[in-house]
C-alpha cells in the first residue's frame, strides 16, 4: 500500500440498496474513489443523484431500510462497513466530521453553543467539562467567531447564518477528524459568506491534513476548491478525474452539459444551455447508460448495457460516445 493511502479514505465498489426481495432497488451503484489526506474531492450531481446518500453510507447513517449491499469503505486502517454500531459511533465522533446545508436547523435550538461543540469531545476524547470548554473556545476562535468568550453560552438563534455555519465547522472539527464531509455547506449562505466559509475549510484542511469530501451541485465552486472531481448521475459515477483534467477536457456528455449550464461573465447575452428532462427514479433505472434518455449523443447501443470504464485511474468516464471522440 502506498504511503498517504493509509491515512485517507478509500471507497471500493460501494452500493446501497433499499428494500428486500423483488422490491429491492439500488440508489448507489458501484462507486469507487480515493481521497488522500489533505485532498478535496468534489462530489457533483443533481438532486437525487446520490450525493448525500453516499455521505450517509460513508458515515453508516443510511435512512431506515437502506443498507450497504456491497463494497468497502476504508478510513485509514479501519474497514467501516464491518464495524459494530458502537464502534461506528466512535468513528463518527472522532474520525469523521460533517457539516450540513442548513446551519440553523442543524443546530439544536435549546442547547448553548458550548454544550453542542463539547458533546462528542467529552464523550469520545475523554475531556473534562472545563477542558472541553477551553477547547470549544479555541475552536470558535479558530473558525473566526468574534468575541468567542462571550458567545460560548449563546444559543444558535442568536447567531447569523454565516456564524452558525462557522459553529457547525467548529463542531465538526471538535475531535480533529481525518475526514470532513461538507454536504452543500454554503447553499444557504450569501456569496460573501460562501467564499469565507470555503476558504476557512480550505485553511483548516491544510493545517490539519484532513481529507475533504465537498458535496455540491455548483461546479464553479468545485473548480475553485477541489483537487478531484467525481460526477454522479442516478446513483452511478459518470466521470471522475483531477480537477484540472476534468475542467479542461470533460469527456462525458453529462459533465459537458453541466459545465455548459454554468453562467459565465464572458458570455453575457448568450443563452444558458440546460438539460431537458429529469433523471430516472431509482426504481426505474434503465439497463443501459442512465443518462441516455437525455443525452444528445445517444445511439441504440447506449441502451443495451452500462458503458465500460474508459480512461486511466487519474481520469476516467463511463460513455461510449465521449466528448472529443473515443480515446
Amino acid at each position: 500500500m502506498k504511503a498517504g493511502e493509509s491515512s485517507g479514505l478509500q471507497v471500493r465498489n460501494l452500493s446501497v440498496t433499499f428494500g428486500r426481495g423483488r422490491k429491492a432497488f439500488q440508489v448507489i451503484e458501484d462507486l469507487s474513489f480515493d481521497i488522500a489526506a489533505g485532498e478535496t474531492l468534489g462530489l457533483v450531481g443533481e438532486s437525487g443523484s446520490g450525493k448525500s446518500m453516499t455521505a450517509a453510507a460513508l458515515m453508516g447513517l443510511l435512512p431506515w431500510g437502506g443498507r450497504v449491499s456491497s463494497g468497502s469503505v476504508r478510513l485509514g486502517e479501519t474497514e467501516m462497513t464491518r464495524l459494530s454500531n458502537a464502534a461506528l459511533r466512535a468513528v463518527r465522533g472522532r474520525e469523521i466530521g460533517m457539516i450540513f446545508q442548513n446551519p440553523l436547523s442543524s443546530l439544536n435550538p435549546s442547547l448553548t453553543i458550548v454544550q453542542q461543540i463539547a458533546e462528542p469531545y467529552c464523550l469520545y476524547c475523554g475531556a473534562s467539562i472545563s477542558a472541553a470548554r477551553t477547547h470549544a473556545l479555541k475552536l470558535l476562535k479558530e473558525v473566526g467567531v468574534p468575541d468567542a468568550e462571550k458567545r460560548l453560552d449563546d444559543y444558535p438563534h442568536q447567531f447569523s447564518g454565516g456564524m452558525r455555519q462557522r459553529v457547525m465547522i467548529a463542531m465538526a472539527l471538535a475531535c480533529n477528524p481525518r475526514l470532513l464531509i461538507a454536504d452543500e455547506p454554503t447553499t444557504a449562505l450569501d456569496v460573501i459568506n460562501q467564499a469565507q466559509i470555503l476558504r476557512l475549510i480550505q485553511r483548516l484542511q491544510k493545517e490539519q491534513g484532513m481529507a475533504v469530501i465537498f458535496i455540491t451541485h455548483d461546479l464553479s465552486l468545485v473548480a475553485e476548491y477541489a483537487h478531484k472531481v467525481m460526477v454522479l448521475y442516478a446513483g452511478k459515477t459518470v466521470e471522475q478525474g483531477s480537477a484540472e483534467d476534468f475542467f479542461q477536457a470533460p469527456r462525458h456528455p453529462y459533465s459537458q452539459a453541466l459545465l455548459n449550464a454554468i453562467p459565465r461573465l464572458m458570455s453575457v447575452g448568450k443563452r444558458l444551455t440546460d438539460i431537458d428532462g429529469l433523471p430516472p427514479r431509482p426504481q426505474e433505472f434503465p439497463r443501459g447508460c442512465r443518462f441516455a434518455e437525455r443525452c444528445p449523443a445517444m445511439t441504440p447501443e447506449c441502451l443495451t448495457a452500462y458503458p465500460e470504464r474508459t480512461g486511466t485511474d487519474a481520469h476516467h468516464f463511463f460513455c461510449i460516445h465521449p466528448v472529443g471522440g473515443a480515446a
Binding site: R92, G93, R94, P120
Partner: peptide, 17 residues
C-alpha cells in the same frame, strides 16, 4: 426528523443521549 438530530447522529452521539 429535524436536522439537528441528524447532526447529533453524524457526531456519534449515542441513541439514548
Amino acid at each position: 426528523r429535524l436536522d439537528y438530530v441528524r447532526t447529533a447522529w453524524a457526531r456519534g452521539i449515542p441513541p439514548l443521549r
